[in-house]
Computed example of a mutant assay.
Amino acid sequence: MEIAAKIITFILLLSLVVSPILIINRLFKLNLNNKFIIYLISGIIITAFLTLTIGWWSTFSNKILLSHYGYNFNAMNDVERFENVGLENLDRVKQLEINILGIGWPLKAYTVYTIYSPYLIIVYLATCYYKKTKNSFCIRINMKKLLLIIICNLSNIVTGQNLPQLKLQDPIGKELDLPGIILNKDEICVILTTNQGFTAYDEKTYYTFKKNGKIEAYEEMAPKSNLKYLDLKKSGEKIILDTATQKYFLDCLNSKVTLDFLNYSQSDFTIENNEPVTTLLKSHPKKYEITFLQNNNSKSYFFYEPRQQFRDTNSRINKIILEKFIKLLELWQMLKT
């Protein structure tokens, strides 16, 4: 099944590479006027369709493979989800699951086409140059317009990633101390914080999504806010992320799991009723917190021992929201799947 999926993917990618070459050669044989305009319009239509097909197929093939390996899409928890998956396939299935939890296939297709589109111009210029050197014949085109098209497409590549507009309403508090992080307009910082009750420090990881396409990461051990009187010192260091890791966290940021959860607030974790609190946490529960920053606004969520409380029978906990929060923590690798 893996081989069949890869063969289809290879054929689609090959079609995307070859189709502009076939189009321009066909137009030169027909000897039509306005070849460049006809080539550009037909090339965009055909290659955009192929890119959408590749984007759809990447998600659809992942779902086929997950079913092939025994993944249960209708399960309510991880145990049920992976119970039919062979141990030797578990890592592969988890990777496929992450791919599905990432950004949707239409956005993937748009991102790929933004990077791919200058290839149409490159093919035209290369073919035109070849015809000129071979037959001393080349269609004259408006070079200023062509240069403008190239610059526009290159600017899309240079600016890197398209950052989402997050639904954040709370102003960033003065107590938030960012370790040398400067956020320009639309840039995003995601702060992952964990702490064990008996320790004096919060463990924080900062992921800063820049408009130039880079993701900067920083790990920090910061004294808990209620222990500042002890004059404890914070420490930290920058983390170098490889290309694959940067892509993973960009997918996390753009994923449906993340963007949908930002529609909720901290108060949605609880249900107002007259039932007493029955949850019994261990003496030093671990706190998980995730904070999003963009354009001077923020949104934070936290919960103590989310998996334990999800299993408890406390009727005041909104289990639907808590389960979504657990998936969010798993996606951002704060909880192991």
Rank of each mutant, 00 (worst) to 15 (best):
T194F: 04
G55K: 03
I21T: 09
V257P: 01
N34I: 10
Q169C: 10
D91Q: 07
R140M: 13
P179Q: 05
L192Y: 01
I23C: 01
N25K: 08
K256S: 14
Y113W: 10
E323Q: 09
A109D: 11
Y248F: 11
Q95A: 12
F137Q: 15
A75F: 01
S61I: 01
I37N: 15
V17K: 00
V93A: 05
R92V: 08
N25W: 08
K256Y: 04
E220W: 10
T243D: 08
A244F: 07
I98L: 08
G173W: 07
Q196N: 12
L329V: 10
F249Y: 12
S15R: 03
N162L: 15
L101Q: 15
S255V: 04
W105A: 05
L331E: 00
S225L: 05
L232K: 04
K108I: 04
L281R: 11
E83K: 13
L50I: 14
S283A: 10
N25L: 15
S155G: 14
F73A: 06
N296V: 07
T111I: 09
N195H: 12
P285K: 02
Y248L: 12
Y110N: 05
G236F: 00
C138I: 04
T258H: 13
A5Y: 09
N84W: 07
I121S: 02
I182G: 03
K319L: 07
T47D: 09
K29W: 15
S225I: 04
R81M: 11
C138H: 11
P171E: 00
L40Y: 07
A126G: 00
E305K: 01
D251S: 14
G197V: 05
I3W: 10
A75C: 03
K238H: 11
L322N: 03
P106K: 05
F137R: 12
L322M: 07
T193A: 01
K247N: 06
A48D: 10
K299Q: 12
L163A: 03
K63G: 02
